Computed example of a mutant assay.
Amino acid sequence: MDGTPAADDGQRAASITLEGIGKRYPDGTEAVRDLSLHVEAGELVVLIGPSGCGKSTVLRMINRLIEPTSGRILLGDSDVTRADPVRLRRRIGYVIQNVGLFPHQTVAANVATVPRLLGWASDRARSRVEELLELVGLDPGQFGRRYPHELSGGQRQRVGVARALAADPVVLLMDEPFSAVDPIVRTRLQEEFLRLQATVRKTIILVTHDLDEAVRLGDRIAVLSQGGRLEQYDTPGTLLGAPATGFVREFVGADRGVRRLVVTPVTREVLAPLPGEDVAALPTVALGGSAYDALAALLTSAGAPAVVVTEQGRPVGLLRREQVLALSDPTG
């Protein structure tokens, strides 16, 4: 192969469309039945549901690790069920729960796996590896020559994300990517991943069993029940505020109002006017910040309201506890 990889054409984010896809095994087991779903280019969509509902099967059908028995899968306008599966996978980044790094290769060599398969020149591959390690918060000089066993779980997960992004894929598939690390590291990785997505704007389908993670990360969430049945496909706020079926209502739980606060921003519409007197002694919350964080500040204010401020620190209104609690009302 020459130094210009075939997968370099059109590495912008691409939409994903599932048209009635299904997977039936020879023994008659129907893992996924007639699932249709559209993911916009640059969107992060989360698949969630109980164990055995076909979430991971859907991911594996998209990159042809498992062949669908019915339906079509479109990457942009191209039907991936008719594409060469090896070439297809080099255009799709894939991150799994236990990372799957090659233990005998250095971090740099692991990240360079797909560029090397695509025939990239060594200088170009090296530059890309350094760029991506910096992007995921790992110093290339410090970590590039290390081996996977010399890294923490969170560091290995970052390397896995860097490797998946190495050839600038049009789509990123992530199967329980943060579940193998402890809760503190998991939260930190989620925050860093959101910052990363704000930079790279890939089309991402992420599988998780954790509703809090789905609400925190997803632009939209697809709730699946047994057999890959799509129960609801909505933004986190709509999903929590208006469950479409009894299954979804039970799945999101009675505490969905609290979860709703995490994805509900503090906006000017809910604010009371600023009083004439000095408000310097009152707690402050950020305009556009989450109602959950605002409630946390209000719970320590002995009943006093909070001052909502812009990024520049300019006060724009007052927020009271009852206003925030109203935002948590699933019927509101």
Rank of each mutant, 00 (worst) to 15 (best):
Q11D: 11
Q11A: 09
I16R: 04
T17P: 01
D27C: 02
T29N: 10
A31T: 04
V32R: 13
D34Y: 02
D34L: 08
I48H: 01
I48V: 15
P50Q: 13
S51N: 09
G52H: 06
S56L: 06
S56P: 07
T57A: 09
V58A: 11
L59H: 04
M61Y: 09
I62T: 05
R64T: 07
T69Q: 09
G71K: 11
L74C: 13
G76I: 10
D77S: 15
D84T: 04
R87A: 15
L88P: 07
I92Q: 04
V95A: 05
Q97N: 09
Q97S: 02
N98W: 00
G100C: 09
G100A: 09
T106Q: 09
V107P: 05
A109C: 03
A109G: 07
V111L: 11
L117P: 00
L117G: 00
L118Q: 14
W120M: 13
S122K: 15
D123P: 01
V129S: 08
L133F: 07
V136D: 05
G137V: 00
Q142I: 14
F143R: 07
G144K: 12
R145V: 06
G153R: 02
R156M: 13
R158E: 06
V161S: 07
L165C: 10
L172K: 00
L172A: 02
L173M: 05
M174Y: 05
D175C: 01
D175N: 04
S179P: 01
I184R: 11
V185R: 00
L189F: 03
E192Y: 02
E192F: 06
L194V: 07
L194R: 13
R195L: 14
Q197T: 08
A198M: 08
A198G: 12
R201A: 14
K202Y: 04
I204M: 14
I205A: 01
L206W: 04
V207S: 02
V207F: 10
V207C: 05
L211I: 15
E213I: 03
R216L: 14
R216F: 14
L224N: 09
L224F: 00
Q226N: 12
G227V: 05
G237W: 02
L240A: 09
F247C: 10
V248P: 10
F251G: 04
V252N: 11
A254N: 02
D255G: 11
R259K: 14
R260E: 07
R260Y: 06
P265Y: 10
R268I: 14
E269A: 15
A272I: 00
A280S: 15
A280K: 01
P283D: 02
G288W: 12
A291K: 06
Y292H: 14
Y292E: 13
D293L: 11
A294L: 09
A296P: 00
A296K: 10
A296L: 14
T310I: 06
E311A: 15
E311Q: 11
Q312H: 12
G313D: 06
R314K: 12
P315N: 04
V316L: 05
L318N: 01
Q323K: 02
A326W: 02
P330S: 11
G332L: 12
